[in-house]
Design a protein around this nucleic acid. Sequence first.
RNA 1: GCAGCUGUAGCUCAGUUGGUUAGAGCGCCGGUCUGUGGAACCGGAGGUCGGUGGUUCGAGCCCACCCAGCUGUACCA
Length: 488
Amino acid sequence: MAKDKINRLKARLPRGLADRGETELAATREMLETIRRVYELYGFEALETPFIEYTDALGKFLPDQDRPNEGVFSFQDDDEQWLSLRYDLTAPLARHVAEHFDALAKPFRSYRAGWVFRNEKPGPGRFRQFMQFDADTVGAPTVAADAEICMMMADTLDALGLNGQYVIKVNNRKVLDGVLEAIGLGGEENAGRRLTVLRAIDKFDKVGIEGVRDLLGEGRWENPAAKSGDFTKGAGLDGAQSEMVLAMLQPGGASGIDNAAFAAGSAELAEIGSLVAAAGYADRVKIDPSVVRGLEYYTGPVFEAELTFEVKDEKGRPVRFGSVGGGGRYDGLVGRFRSEPVPATGFSIGVSRLAAALTTLGKLGSKAIAGPVVVLVMDRDRVADYMTMVSRLRSAGIRAEMYLGNPKNIGNQMKYADKRGAPCVVIQGSNEREAGEVQIKDLIEGAKAAEAITDNAEWREARPAQFSCRESELVEKVREVLARHDFG
RNA sequence: GCAGCUGUAGCUCAGUUGGUUAGAGCGCCGGUCUGUGGAACCGGAGGUCGGUGGUUCGAGCCCACCCAGCUGUACCA
């Protein structure tokens, strides 16, 4: 009816979300398994926390407001307490550790994979639901814990087949803080400008040294030469201040800075550098002063895993995958729940983005997934017999099913099997039945054999890659076909 | 958030200076076809032409505003 038509629901997905099919799920599963194996090898243990936490546990109430940050999906419980979908896996871990502090062996080494949610504008490679795979060490103040995490990330990316195509970059927030203090941006009243300076440094990769110089000073035009496009307001530093920050980004590093934070950060970086070098990871884990990373809770070393290869998109333009993970030390997070500070450090892999990169490199998801063996229904009143055949195949561990659609047309059943990617079909009509036989048709071989055939009548007549066998040999013969195509 | 571009069927698109009942290819469903998957032929479903308002005898087309998508930029705990 017309009314139904008007009111009919439109099937659609909210933006920034995605359904995932068989191929992608299999690829992700394979990748997660590889990561998990490396993490366990390092002695980390599995942990799962729920999707939902109290908003205050996530630390995402807006300052001076009685409601959560808009970037977090939030809702109120019956008792009016705010709940939120987790936006990363670190804050829930901190809550878990604080809640079970006395029962856990410390340092507590754990890993977890799961979906996280951010209510932000989606873009290419950016979703509102995505998966992270984290590993954290809680209760270890030593930078050996930081160095270990970095080396584990390198091993993980190696295990995924990315040897030589990435770098784990390491910096230290204390170094940055020391520089900021040295140029007179210490103290609470300069928090806003510090943030602007950090953001400018963070853009080093994208805009280069001159771009950072502009951003530290008055600001930067989207198109600097023509002074056109969007204008990004800068931090308003004077020349001397800017040069000090810029010096830090260049070979040789900052000099003439003499304060406690800078000294401590530099010492930590040096120690991480020597630990990494001693273990033979110096080619993969490198100190990089431009890494800023998560502007809020990091307190010491910060890490970023960056892919260094370039790929061309459909239009032939280069695409950089860039950062596929990051982390750092967050000594204050667990302490929010306790009377004492609790040191912690961790790393988070962006599973979806990394999977996209691996797929592009052909290191993931290239393996064809075998469809089920399809038993055709030739005779409507012998469904029980066909189901018995299916059952025999399944008992032998072979993925199989009987055709459940309208069986009147054999061609349709064949089309179905073809579309499902069935390696073969089993056929038993009255002729075969009387002879105690079944026909097995190898669809993969058949497709190859028939490539030369152009005429449909001939195609039908030829019945390529089809053979008959005793019904009692069904399982054995199907297995042979599967083995032939490496689906055994 | 800001800027630019784009909105016609599930997808890719056509649609004349504004003129009757908005089309094609692919895909989908069914049939030819109750013994064979690539083909062919026939039939069918599927559109408030992104939305609202305006100009006009008449708007898919012109105008205004809004919405959505894409790209860039900003933000990203």
